[in-house]
C-alpha cells in the first residue's frame, strides 16, 4: 500500500477535514451497469481467494482496515438528491468532511 494511502487509512481521513463537494454528478446507465458488474466480479474473485489453501508459514501483515464508521461520522451531508433522466442518473450533492 502506498504510504500516503496508509496514512489516510490510519488517521481515518482526518487530514482531509474541511473538504467539500457541491454540484450535480451525472452517471450514464451504461456506467452504472459496468459498476455493478465490476463490483460483482470483485466479490467473486474475493470469494475465490478466500477458499482454503495451504497454510502460509509466515503470513504477510494485513493492510490497515478502513474504519467506515469513523469516516461516516466525519461526513456532513446537506443535500443528497437522486433522480433519473433518459439514459442517466443524476445526483445532486452538497457534502463535507468535518473535523
Amino acid at each position: 500500500m502506498h504510504p500516503v494511502q496508509k496514512h489516510l487509512f490510519d488517521t481515518n481521513f482526518k487530514d482531509l477535514a474541511g473538504s467539500k463537494i457541491e454540484g450535480t454528478i451525472a452517471i450514464s446507465d451504461e456506467l452504472i451497469n459496468m459498476g455493478i458488474m465490476d463490483f460483482l466480479n470483485g466479490l467473486k474473485s474475493g470469494a475465490e481467494n478466500d477458499a482454503p489453501s495451504k497454510p502460509s508459514p509466515a503470513p504477510a501483515a494485513a493492510p490497515p482496515a478502513l474504519d467506515t464508521k469513523a469516516i461516516l461520522a466525519l461526513l456532513e451531508v446537506e443535500t443528497l438528491k437522486f433522480r433519473t433522466s433518459e439514459g442517466q442518473a443524476m445526483l445532486e450533492v452538497n457534502a463535507s468532511l468535518v473535523s
Binding site: D15, A17, I21, I25
Partner: peptide
C-alpha cells in the same frame, strides 16, 4: 458517461498530509 456533471470539489490538505 458523465456528461451533464457540474461539480466543485474543495480538497483541504492538512500540513501533516502534505508532508507525508
Amino acid at each position: 458517461h458523465i456528461g451533464g456533471t457540474d461539480a466543485t470539489l474543495d480538497l483541504c490538505l492538512d500540513r501533516v498530509l502534505l508532508n507525508e
